[in-house]
């Protein structure tokens, strides 16, 4: 079964089969990164544009390495170098890039739906590398890949996602993915950070971290965005850590073989204590390693499926 779509805009529209295809394919690509020559010719001659309108080191670098290990020509455009600062609209930027025949455009943007806007007008495949508070599909895929590597399968696992759910695209993509694959997903955070009607996505909502951690196999901590700190959501980061920070003491409520995940970058002492972040349960760096493999798989699958779509 091929990944029969032009773009990867989110996890929500993917079928379970498509998710499994991406994860299985990533397994094969992970091996490439362990070679002396970390490069295969799979996407030779393909042009990939990393179009980042928000600062990002991890995701941008991960896509860049993924593209390079597949022999694609990949280039980076970040908002500081783009003509956005000169007042160009997103559509005009996209049309100009399109005119140079890229095969894939990877976009990170502060506005939900920005990748959809591009997908509507571009021949190139669009990959959403995070749009506002909407989705961050490759992050959820690499998280699922990491869970699968550690736990064998995802079905039946208890996963707690803790933090600012309201503004988190990582949370949304993970909720879609983990519920699709049959995990029991719990979310926890201050009431001001829980979006309305989130239960309809199939999750259980907790306002106390201890209850959420009880018997968990996986704990995903979300970043509290210091830069987005608005006092109407949270009185202080200190109070946040007191109520929701992940400490070794609290972690005792989870299963003995629990794994701790974080999409990064970490705020030590805000959402997670250093003991936990650097402790034996942490798989945070595995997530980063797996990010490259998952993104190689996504690039490969979108390029393979594309021709068919054009033909039909």
């Amino acid at each position: 079964m091929p990944l029969n779509r032009k773009d990867l805009l989110g996890i929500e529209p993917l079928s379970v089969e498509e998710v499994n295809l991406i994860l299985d394919t990533a397994k094969a690509f992970k091996e490439v990164s362990t070679r002396d020559i970390k490069k295969v010719p799979t996407l030779r001659g393909k042009t990939i544009i990393n179009l980042f309108f928000e600062p990002s080191t991890r995701t941008r670098t991960s896509f860049e390495i993924a593209g390079k290990r597949l022999s694609a020509d990949i280039l980076n455009i970040s908002s500081s170098t783009s003509s956005v600062v000169k007042g160009e609209t997103l559509i005009d930027t996209a049309k100009n890039l399109e005119a140079m025949y890229p095969d894939i455009i990877i976009i990170r943007h502060s506005r939900a739906g920005a990748p959809h806007l591009l997908a509507n007008i571009c021949r190139a495949s669009i990959i959403n590398a995070g749009d506002g508070a909407h989705e961050h599909p490759t992050q959820a895929l690499l998280d699922a890949f990491t869970i699968r590597e550690n736990k064998g399968q995802i079905k039946g696992l208890k996963v707690a996602i803790i933090g600012d759910i309201l503004h988190s695209r990582v949370a949304r993509s993970n909720i879609h993915l983990l519920t699709k694959l049959g995990a029991e997903v719990r979310i926890a955070g201050p009431a001001t950070y829980i979006p309305v009607e989130i239960e309809k996505l199939g999750v259980k909502v907790f306002h106390h971290i201890d209850a959420a951690l009880e018997g968990c196999d996986v704990v995903m901590m979300l970043r509290i965005q210091r830069e987005r700190q608005d006092k109407s959501y949270l009185p202080s980061l200190r109070e946040y850590f007191n109520l929701f920070g992940l400490t070794p003491e609290r972690l005792k409520r989870a299963k003995k073989d629990v794994i701790i995940m974080h999409p990064g970058p970490l705020n030590r002492g805000v959402e997670i204590s250093s003991e936990v972040a650097d402790g034996p349960y942490s798989v945070i760096l595995e997530q980063v390693t797996n990010g490259v493999a998952v993104r190689m798989a996504v690039l490969y699958l979108l390029m393979g499926g594309k021709y068919e779509e054009v033909v039909s």
Partner: peptide, 23 residues
Amino acid sequence: LDITMYRDDLTAVGPQPIVRQTN
């Protein structure tokens, strides 16, 4: 050896091959 990553027909008509692990 899985040679899928080295194939020269990636964008040819037809479903793309499933990549399996090289070991």
